[in-house]
Design a protein around this nucleic acid. Sequence first.
DNA 1: GCCAACGTTGGC
DNA 2: GCCAACGTTGGC
Length: 295
Amino acid sequence: MGEKQRYCICRSRDSKSFMIACDKCEEWFHGKCIKITPEKAKHIKEIKYKKKKEKHSHHSDEPPSKQAKLSFGSGKAKSIANKQCGNCENCERIEDCGRCDFCKDMKKFGGPNRIRQKCRLRQCKELGIRPDDLRSSAYNDDPPSPTAPPSPATSPTPPTPTTPTPTPTPPTPSTPTTNAAPVKGKPGRKPKFPRPPKPEKQKRGPKPKTFKEPKESKPRKPYTRRKTNENSVGRVTMKEVDRQCFGPSCVNSARPDSKYCSDDCGMKLGNASGGHHARPNCPMAELSLRCRAEE
DNA sequence: GCCAACGTTGGC
DNA sequence: GCCAACGTTGGC
Ligand SMILES: [Zn+2]
Ligand SMILES: [Zn+2]
């Protein structure tokens, strides 16, 4: 087939950057995307997906009750309309990462809800992300740390992924491609509602929504009916999701109104932030690294 | 009615 | 053609 293999949570074809592979699922991640420096990678022994229940569920066939919610497994599930293959890592995810651009757009993450797309980490790798639908730089998170420039003069970072374990197959470093730094912030449509500079006290009342003149432009094409259930779309709401505590190495469920299962964990997190991946906003929260040093 | 998120629009 | 915006819809 094509050489267009994609990698990482960003699904780019970039195989030049430093990458690290999960020896279990064989997924490659850009160090920069999951915030692992080559240095750190040396110490990594194993990558595990954070949620215990979730960890590599496609390696061990577990039938978690949660997935019942995502009803694809049964019968004919391959619905393009649903854009869920049901088998890939992303389809199995039930939590929004909270860090991708789509997540950040969500209300529940304090976003304006303009983009209204599913979390990138939950977009099906097979059906949900069309090659041409790739939006760039999903994680525009933190700027490069002043102390840790991404380009150490020592390593030009060829596709020499530092694999935690002997991984037989490096990602064919073909596809020279041109995607160096995908440019975000391209034109796009301009917001109809200029976005209140200060969302503060927009006291309720008849909401000013819709200023548009009924300019009787051509009526919108009716949307093609979304595929009706018979295996309903796997919708996930925060309420349903058993959110895990953000506390370091804590696997308890978070309290409904908190990121942590207890105040204690909140504290611990703070203390651990000098550590490996304790920062809640760090993409590594997606993955949990087991470090040799921890043993 | 609310929500997740699909699918289309329209500016660039 | 790309992509942000958003109307809209099915499920709950
Ligand atoms: Zn996300
Ligand atoms: Zn999938």
